[in-house]
Simulated assay, not measured.
Amino acid sequence: GLRVLDNLPAPSLPCEQDRLRDFMGRRERGELLIQKINKLQEKLLKKMQLSVSKDGFVHFGDTVMLLNPDSKSSVKNCPGACVRLTLAINLDEISIYSFKSLEAPCGVSAVESVDPVARNTFCILSVDGAPASEPIRFGQKFSLGTTGGASDRMLYLASDHKSFIRFAKKSHLQQVFLTDELSYLTCWQAAFLDPQLRLEHEGFPVP
């Protein structure tokens, strides 16, 4: 016949109570995984104030967005494409273990939001000792940094040449990403829009 085992140990109530107390304590201290993820997202989505130029030029130290403006030709060539995009930290590539600050390398992507927040704003930084508030000039090197809403670590926008093993996932062009190391990959230059007039505008302030 069927035998019933009646001598199995009963659940340990003190052990369950200890786990519950530990859970409640970590929740009060904000140490739960979901709480840490929410805090990081709050930092990245924190509203930012863009710099306002008083002389019509872009300066070192300015807080800016990298915006793809409306372009009728791009919409005509690529039906369904969003005409206004900003470069932003890619939330899909952030590790769930990056609780306090962003980890390098960190991916970036184009997003439809044009509201300035921590994930899509950058600070223009000098790489040759130029003082803050000085206008940037065509052909002059600079870097673009972001803290992602934190204050303890700066990441720099970088780009590398396309190769057989290194390329952007969607466009298959050269990669653009954030890194914590300054190098020639993090140096950028402003070029005049018309290629035929670039040499004439070399050294002039960027409007």
Rank of each mutant, 00 (worst) to 15 (best):
N38V: 10
K39P: 04
L40V: 10
K43P: 06
L44R: 11
L44T: 10
L50K: 04
S51P: 04
S51L: 08
V52Y: 09
D55W: 00
D55S: 03
F57N: 10
V58T: 03
G61C: 05
V64L: 05
L66H: 03
L66T: 03
L66Y: 06
P69W: 04
S74K: 10
S74P: 03
V75E: 14
V75C: 11
K76M: 12
K76T: 09
N77K: 13
G80R: 06
L85F: 07
I89N: 07
Y97Q: 12
S101P: 01
S101Y: 10
L102H: 04
P105K: 14
P105I: 02
V108Y: 01
S109F: 05
S109N: 13
S109V: 11
S113D: 13
V114N: 13
D115E: 12
P116K: 10
N120F: 04
V127N: 02
P131T: 06
A132P: 06
S133H: 13
P135D: 00
R137D: 01
F138T: 01
G139W: 03
G139T: 02
Q140F: 00
Q140L: 01
F142S: 01
S143F: 03
T147H: 11
A150L: 06
S151P: 05
D152E: 14
D152C: 05
R153P: 03
R153S: 15
L157M: 03
A158Q: 02
S159I: 13
D160C: 15
